[in-house]
Design a protein around this nucleic acid. Sequence first.
DNA 1: TTGAAAGCGATACCAA
DNA 2: TTGGTATCGCTTTCAA
Lengths: 339, 339
Amino acid sequence: MKATIYDVAREAGVSIAAVSQVMNGKGKISEERRAEILKTMERLNYQPSVIASALTGKKTFTLGLLVPDISNPFFAEIARAVEDQGHHLGYSLVICSTDNKDERVERYLNLLQQKSIDGMIIGTGMDNKEMLTPLMKQGIPIAMIAREMPDIGVHTVVVDDCVGGALAAKHLLDLGHTRVAILAEHAKVISSRERVRGFRNTLEEAGVVLPDSGVRNCHYTVEDGKRQAIALLEESAAVRPTALFCCNDMLAIGALQAAKQLGLKVPEQLSVIGFDNTILASVTDPPLTTVAQPIEPMGKKVVDLLIQELKKESKLKQRVVLRPELMIRQSTASPGDMH
Amino acid sequence: MKATIYDVAREAGVSIAAVSQVMNGKGKISEERRAEILKTMERLNYQPSVIASALTGKKTFTLGLLVPDISNPFFAEIARAVEDQGHHLGYSLVICSTDNKDERVERYLNLLQQKSIDGMIIGTGMDNKEMLTPLMKQGIPIAMIAREMPDIGVHTVVVDDCVGGALAAKHLLDLGHTRVAILAEHAKVISSRERVRGFRNTLEEAGVVLPDSGVRNCHYTVEDGKRQAIALLEESAAVRPTALFCCNDMLAIGALQAAKQLGLKVPEQLSVIGFDNTILASVTDPPLTTVAQPIEPMGKKVVDLLIQELKKESKLKQRVVLRPELMIRQSTASPGDMH
DNA sequence: TTGAAAGCGATACCAA
DNA sequence: TTGGTATCGCTTTCAA
């Protein structure tokens, strides 16, 4: 059916060892033999089996990527960035949506291990970090992206969430907002907590206090963002927040919808600022001001770190923190601004 | 390092054949031996190597998915649907973004072949269909989703594009529109052509003619949609179209932005209708009326067809056409309607 | 029932 | 330079 190394060897009248050598560019082969072998490989349309070579200890050139949900634009964009750099370096990507369920994480981790992937990129949270130890014990490199698990000794690439929060706060402060509130993610998500912290600190430094009641934890859905935003905004104009900082774009969209439902004009009566800068932020009306994560560089970096480790070029684990950037669009303005 | 079948056999005091048999539930093994082996597998935390078993002719339990761009919401949603059903049946998914470039398609096809994937799901177009023959000759099942290549004998799952176009037309007709235009995709995309055809036919049956100048082919970007929409709308109110049918949600968003820039109110002065019903359609303002593709069922179906074929349960190739559904949101209304 | 042994396709060491 | 051969981990006859 398919040509194997044996077929090539036979046709070229050489040993399989010779064929293997020209494939790997190792050993000594005379130019003529080499050319001859190359030619037969061509003629037979020979495609070496990655499976077979992996069995002899070589790599599978396949990486695993764990994310909560590949259909979520943020993770889809992460996946694309990871895929591109992986492909560039000769690796394929197996994607796994975990729905943030530990059982799915575990199942995938096992599965990919059995399939001998060369490395694992994790962009999903997990409650039980023990799940990673089998992988680590087996020497499969791990790298995290957009999530972190301190005290677990793996490469990590994240955005500086605290600075991101600060950037958002500063922007609102500059516009003159003093009554602000936050739509945060679940309290166990470290990055969300950091964003809130950065936001809050900056506010406080400016003498603006943010009451605890002004921070609402939401599920990762537009609907919940909308619901929580409504709860926050259903007050008289005198006390109602004039600006909402949302820890991701989905929640910000929920906030936009809440404002619309309540008849509040954005940005005139309410400023909304998101986080991530996914494609969603650019299609809303008004376009969303948001804190951008440098998704592409992040994806490139995790792959680089991971592959560096699996090639044993470096042993030390890195934690790379990239700087977020404020994307000012049209969902923010000075309070009461009727521009 | 890692336990192999030999370790298990030795520890359990049996032959590797016995271990293999209990793993595959084949052959005859006494209950005691079986239990004993199971126990040692557990104790050693034995994970069979998919690589090794694939080498002996078994499957890799891995499927490939080719799409133009995984960061595009439509394909990300397709990927999720495919992943779910694959996972359900025990298969992992390797994703590949082709950017609609034949060279990338070819590269990925080769790569995945070398990695011995069990089947290939194609959701990207390609100019040169010859690229598939190596795969087919090697007996790797292929199935297409959301795209088709007639005369190539592979499973295909698509939405009825023609009906989708008709649905859109009927909706606009019902609302009373008579001056309409279309933002289509590239002319070589069959599904887009079909959508246009269904739309046009329905219009004509109602006695409404759509001049060729009212159909503009666009690139797959919001920007191009916007540009082409502006070209279409920059006419006096008396002749300007009152409704735009866009062959995908991205283009519809471009149309929405064009309307905004030109100061046209949607839906009062311009109705916009999209296609796909991706998450984007639900976050725009106003929310987009769009023709929904049943993405989840489509994903499930391709996987089922593919796996059915690779299990040799059935030989005949199927072409499954699912029915689209009109999702009426708020971007469409009667012309001149000031509701 | 159970196990010895022959592959699967490639790598790599060691003689020749 | 070359080629013979053991090996990777597992499946699958075929004898015993």
